[in-house]
Simulated assay, not measured.
Amino acid sequence: MENLTYNSPVLQLEGLVISEHYIYPTFLSLLFAYVLVVISNTGILLLIIMERSLHKPMYLLFCNLPFNDVFGNSVVVPRLMMDMLKPDSERYISYVDCVTQAFGYHMFSCASNYVLMVMAFDRYVAICNPLHYTTIMTTKMVAKLTASAWGVTLLLVCILLGLTLRLNRCGTFIANPFCDNASLFKLSCESSEINNIYGLVYTAAVAGCSIATIGLTYSKIAAVCLSSKNKSLNSKALKTCSTHLTVYMIMWSCGCIMIILHRFSGVAEYRKAAALMFHIVPGILNPLIYALQCTEIRHVILKILNAEKLMT
């Protein structure tokens, strides 16, 4: 029997499967986490924009990270919370909204890697070529690095979803807490072999470039620090690089947990929770790590707090 093509304009989301007793505690926990992500990341973003002393390449490039965290969480979490308050049978989403959410989700996950890559390049130039740092890391270079990170991300994600949008659909159920590319092309009754191949190439390219770039820059930074007897340089390198590397490891830890759980049956709900944590955990920890570790940001925050105390 041939598969029937429906191309329904409305899809049904599985969402999070939670016992009735835990719906409101989970909802309030997600609400608190989302508000914390938005306030902390927006706050540190505004702090860098408004404070002239922080208008340096390192912090200007870092601005991409809080922006991406707010964007990525806003794409997924509010919709997920609304669906939690609905019965399972009423969790509907239009196909257009589902594609839009999938686009936002993949933009967030891909951009997280590329933004950290350009930040690693900045640290490499600052530590390995400090005498030419100001001539290399100009405002124009910062704009180019930012544009390249988002441009490459946009291109890869558009191809990813473009291959899925060409397929006819005969299914309407998204077996996931939110829409992503894999959930969408699984609705198709046509061959999705090209989608699977490109998906693997896409994942390998993003992960491979990310690991290679971070590994290469940090190996060169380590070589410079080991060969240098300048304690001031080594101390500065350790502070700035440890902050960046911690943020990178948090992102990868959350991502790896999600990927590992995909390989085991019977842990679907844990996988969904891990996918959600991939958004929330870095979004909460990133501004906290930079606020505590970066001396200049910490000084600006303390200056603002002291000024408020004097006014009161």
Rank of each mutant, 00 (worst) to 15 (best):
I48N: 01
L116R: 00
H106L: 02
F173A: 08
N3A: 14
A102G: 05
W252L: 04
T312W: 15
Y218R: 07
F67S: 07
V142G: 00
I194A: 13
I221S: 01
N41Y: 02
A273K: 01
E190I: 09
I44M: 02
K186W: 09
C63P: 10
A268V: 05
I259R: 15
M251H: 00
D97F: 07
S265F: 04
D180Q: 08
L245F: 15
L28S: 09
L156Q: 05
N286L: 00
A149G: 05
F185I: 08
Y248V: 08
V96L: 11
Q293I: 01
F178G: 02
V125T: 13
G162V: 07
T217E: 03
L233P: 05
T217P: 01
G283L: 05
I197K: 14
G151S: 03
M141T: 12
V267P: 00
H132C: 12
S89E: 15
L285E: 10
C209H: 03
V300R: 15
G208R: 12
L145C: 04
C179T: 07
V267R: 12
P78M: 14
L46K: 00
V300K: 13
N195G: 05
V118H: 09
L216M: 11
C128D: 09
Y114P: 07
S235T: 10
D69A: 02
P57H: 02
M1A: 13
L131H: 15
C225I: 03
Y218H: 15
T153C: 12
I259T: 11
V99K: 11
C189E: 14
S265M: 10
I159N: 05
L160I: 01
A182Q: 03
G199T: 12
I257L: 14
F103E: 15
V125G: 06
C209T: 09
N41K: 09
K56I: 12
G199L: 13
K140T: 11
I259S: 10
F103R: 14
A126C: 03
H279N: 13
I174E: 11
G208T: 08
P25F: 11
M137E: 03
L145H: 06
H279G: 03
V281I: 12
Y34T: 07
I48M: 00
N234D: 04
F103V: 08
C110G: 00
E193W: 13
S210L: 09
C294L: 15
N230E: 14
